[in-house]
């Protein structure tokens, strides 16, 4: 069991992210030594045994369903996937010409970009700010307050948003009290121009606190001695953040960034589905909601929606590869 402790100890090394990907300059291109790998696996066999359930879940729910991807190239028949006839990329041709698809693709990319540009730095900044709070009790209270919204479902939050920003909502009432003319044209929930901003900011409000956890963990892994030495040398708070904190968590930021880029085609189904409505389709309908509507409300051929889903995931995968490569080229830690 000492081996387990040793391995777990490695995984919990300062910075957390250190164990995720190879650090710069440590990459090796040695040929695989299967015998050595086998020995190592045997040595850490209990850890691998503990991994089994996870691998099993991934295999069952992530790999076996890939069999169904061939539906993207077939006209689905109830006789089964194998018995369904191939269709010469008909779904992809239809997809590219389908009126709602290009709009959904565009919305997905725009909303994801907005989330990255505006939303991605926010948990980092929040983590740095929380870290600077000196009173431990206050820090914990703040962390709890910021993290709590993560545990509210989007169904619930959609209701809260309606009650706040709707026709009879408190925000409109306040505005009406200030200037009735402004409230007369109140239309926030159904304003296509405002919808993306509402998506991004409500998501930040809900998830930023949760997002700080990983950065605070990374910060906690930085050697305290560095801060003490910097303080002795006369470094101010800003200098300590710039020269110790940020470099200490930059690996984690890089990993998070790569993962975020790799999910750019995910626009946040739960959030959009629960908050959007027809007037905001043109700015808020994303690929996932488009697929949902086509599959379950229009009763489209399963093959068509599989094609759209496959397209989305291929793009996601390509973006992930690209982001990982760029991050590596910049000398940061990567996923692999």
């Amino acid at each position: 069991m000492a081996e387990i402790q040793q391995q777990l100890g490695t995984a919990m090394s300062p910075g957390g992210a250190a164990a995720i990907g190879p650090s710069p300059g440590r990459r090796s291109r040695e040929p695989l030594n299967w015998k050595r790998i086998g020995k190592r696996i045997w040595r850490y066999k209990w850890i691998y045994v503990m991994m089994l359930p996870t691998l099993l879940v991934i295999f069952i729910f992530r790999y076996i369903p890939m069999y169904g991807l061939q539906l993207a190239f077939k006209n689905y028949k109830l006789a089964g996937i194998a018995a369904s006839p191939w269709n010469d990329f008909a779904h992809f041709k239809r997809m590219l010409g389908y009126p709602g698809f290009m709009q959904a693709l565009q919305n997905t990319l725009i909303i994801s970009m907005m989330r990255i540009v505006i939303g991605f730095p926010f948990p980092i900044i929040l983590a740095l700010m929380i870290n600077e709070v000196r009173l431990r009790r206050s820090k914990r209270v703040l962390q709890t307050i910021y993290t709590f919204p993560h545990f509210l479902s989007w169904v619930l939050l959609a209701g809260i948003m309606l009650n706040m920003f709707g026709q009879a909502g408190i925000v409109r009432k306040v505005i009406e009290a200030i200037n009735p003319a402004w409230a007369a044209d109140w239309n926030l929930l159904y304003d296509a121009g405002a919808y993306r901003w509402m998506v991004v900011f409500s998501d930040m409000w809900k998830e930023a606190g949760w997002g700080t956890i990983i950065y605070l963990a990374a910060i906690a892994g930085i050697d305290e001695a560095l801060f003490e030495a910097a303080a002795i040398d006369g470094a101010g708070r800003g200098q300590r953040i710039r020269h110790i904190l940020l470099p200490g968590i930059i690996g984690m930021i890089a990993i998070q960034f790569v993962l975020r880029i790799g999910s750019m085609m995910e626009g946040g189904f739960d959030q959009i589905f629960n908050t959007y409505n027809e007037p905001v389709y043109r700015t808020g309908d994303i690929i996932d909601t488009f697929v949902y509507r086509m599959t379950f409300q229009r009763g489209a051929d399963m093959g068509f929606t599989t094609a759209v889903g496959l397209f989305k995931n291929v793009v996601n995968f390509a973006l992930l590869l690209m982001a990982n490569a760029i991050t590596r080229a910049l000398g940061q830690r990567t996923l692999w």
Partner: peptide
């Protein structure tokens, strides 16, 4: 004894997690 206890614990944990997986079915 400690070593065996840990092995047993790891084994039980694995069985438990596998059971959870099965429960998803």
């Amino acid at each position: 004894i400690m070593r065996n206890a840990k092995r047993t614990l790891a084994f039980l944990l694995t069985v438990f997690l596998l059971a959870l997986t099965a429960a998803c079915g």
